[in-house]
Amino acid sequence: MKIIKAIFKKQAKDMFKNPTVLLMFIIFPAVAFIMTVFVTIPDNEFGDNMFVTMMASIFAGMGLITAVAGAIAEDIETRSLRFLIIAGVKPHQYLLGVGGFFLAAALVTTIIFNLIGGFTGTDCLKFLSIMGSGTAASILLGSTIGMWSKNAQAAGGLATPIAVIIGFTPMIANFNETVEKAAGILYTQQINVIVNDFSADMKKPLLVIAANITVFAVLFVLAYRKKGLKG
């Protein structure tokens, strides 16, 4: 546990000195706040929290995937990870430390989204749990990309298009039925569905998110077996 805590602390200190990553955790709720307060859409069929739901699903998909992939790939590229492993850090401890930190940081951002959206009671619980599971899926996918990449630049090259597809599809799906149908298999679309309507049945969205997590877990195991985490 002390090792996971040490990696968690390292990641936290590193993020606060890395404006590019830090910005990802701030920019999405900031945009949601500004749009919610200052933009009024007449006869808005998407509800008052349109920008919160949109930005929350983009954040859960896009921001986290690139941040996690970049952090792991950078540690591999600079050989920092190799020194950690030699010092006795097990790969699962490293991944739990890094993943745990991003999960915690994403939770803080999710709480900010929740405050902007003004969700209370069961809606708040539903929002936190659906965002939490989406975050877990993104961290798994980001870790897989990070492990697979030789360096941070390669991770960025691979993570960005994937993150853009996963993050932005729900937004496009709002305006196009065909895209909406296709996007049904994405966890970010399910986050969007639930957050848009908390009274909707959660069974299907949760099943889709669980299926996404399973697929990403399989990819993660395959990447780990093929590439390992020697740094």
Partner: peptide, 27 residues
């Protein structure tokens, strides 16, 4: 075992002390 390789593997954004404290926590 202590090890110093051709690539230092230090965390560039962290301070010198933070780099060492990370390993102190691990050890």
């Amino acid at each position: 075992t202590g090890l110093m390789l051709d690539t230092d593997g230090l965390y560039s954004r962290l301070s010198c002390l933070d780099n060492l404290n990370l390993f102190a926590d691990i050890y």
